[in-house]
Each structure stands twice: as C-alpha cells, then as structure tokens.
C-alpha cells in the first residue's frame, strides 16, 4: 500500500474540491452540529454538578475521580461500545463528546467558583445579597473566565474528535479522511485537516469574543 502521489498527481486537486463543494459544505455543517451540541449538553450538566461540588466540598473528590476517568476513555472505544445501544446514529458520537465536555467543565466550574475571593463573597453577603442573587450576580460572573477556558478546551477537542466518528461512518469532515484513504487520494484528507483546524480556530475565536462580551471588566 505504498501511496506516495505520482509525480504528475498534484498534492491538492482544486478541481475536485470545487466539484464537491456542496458535499463538503454538508459535512462541515454536520461537523459543527456533532461538536457543538455535546458542548451545550455538557455545559448544561456541568454547571449544576460544579455548583454542587463547590457548595459541598466532600463530593468533589469522587466526582473529580469519575470525570478524569471519563476523560481517559478512548473515543473510538466509546463509539463502538455505544453502537450496541444507540446504533449508527449521531447520538452515538455525541454521547462520548458530551462526557468529555463534562469532564473538562466540571473542574472548570469548581475552580472558577473557588477563584471568587472570599472578601468579595463576604462583601456580597454583607450588602444583603441572597444566596441565589449572589451566585448569579457575583460568583458566576467572576467564575466566567475559568469556565470559558474549559469551554474553549472542550470545544476545540470535540471538533478534532468528531472526525474519529468517521470510523463508524458518522464523522462530519472526518468522512473526507476515510474517503481519501479508501481511494488513495490526498486532496480530501488535506481539505479535511485544514477545514477541521480552521473550524477549531474559528470556534475558539468566537468563544474568546463571547468571553470579552461577558466580562467587559477584564478588557485591558
């Protein structure tokens, strides 16, 4: 299976890309869907879990042990195990990604809340903030940068991991890899790698923008 491109074969065939632009666009959309939905689900679960861990400190160590184990699970292994339960569906790819997001975000939320200086918390109590108002108006905003850092890591990792799903046929841009490999044809592979990286960079940039909007006080 020696597969170096022949001398007359360029590394990238632009005409192929032009012809398949529609398909590639569809894969890109699929890729975005497969990577973003798990981030949202992971965030929705991680917030209450993280809050609980920050409030009742004793549950944090076991939760941390579980999340770091989850993070260690190879994606491909989770995908194929889940096939038995959720079949060859989007859900099969999104469940592991949501778990990874969760395992990155829970420590992020806890660290973020712990980063709230004690004097700030006490000042809020002294000014008559109730627990819920204090959480929403004081503690969560201060925790935003740490949580956002976790969110960026999770989003970028998910975007890169989605392509592994191509091994079970659901991989967004990852399908360009398997396609190129099966046909011994580098163009789709290079396009897939480049688009995945661009998508990751774009998502990361978007999140940085969101963070700046959420925390105007930290802008220099």
């Amino acid at each position: 299976m020696i597969a170096a491109p022949a001398d007359d074969e360029p590394l990238i065939r632009w005409d192929w890309l032009a012809r398949n632009a529609d398909d590639i666009g569809g894969m890109l959309a699929d890729h975005v869907y497969l990577s973003v939905v798990p981030v949202v689900i992971g965030l929705v679960i991680a917030l209450p879990v993280g809050l609980a861990c920050a409030r009742w400190r004793w549950i944090y160590p076991p939760v941390l042990a579980v999340t770091s184990l989850l993070y260690a699970l190879p994606a491909i292994a989770l995908f194929v195990v889940l096939i038995a339960f959720t079949g060859l569906s989007h859900t099969t790819v999104m469940i592991p990604l949501a778990l990874y997001t969760l395992s990155v975000l829970v420590p992020g939320v806890v660290d973020g809340l712990r980063a709230v200086p004690d004097h700030v918390r006490q000042a809020a109590v002294a000014m008559g903030f109730g627990p819920l108002r204090r959480l929403v108006q004081v503690e969560l905003p201060i925790a935003v940068p740490v949580v956002m850092a976790g969110l960026r890591v999770a989003t970028v990792s998910n975007i890169s991991l989605v392509s592994v799903g191509a091994l079970i046929g659901i991989g967004g841009l990852g399908e360009l890899f398997t396609d190129g490999f099966n046909r011994d044809f580098p163009t789709p592979i290079i396009a897939g790698v480049v688009l995945t990286i661009l998508l990751a960079v774009a998502a990361d940039g978007l999140l940085i923008l969101v963070q700046r909007l959420l925390t105007p006080w930290s802008r220099q």
Partner: peptide, 14 residues
C-alpha cells in the same frame, strides 16, 4: 488539540 487525529494518521501513511 485542534489537530484531527485520524486525518493526521491517514495523511502520514499516504
């Protein structure tokens, strides 16, 4: 973190 593992592997072999 942004590098797609599978794409990199296939590219390396190709």
């Amino acid at each position: 973190r942004a590098l797609p593992t599978l794409g990199l592997l296939i590219l390396a072999v190709l």
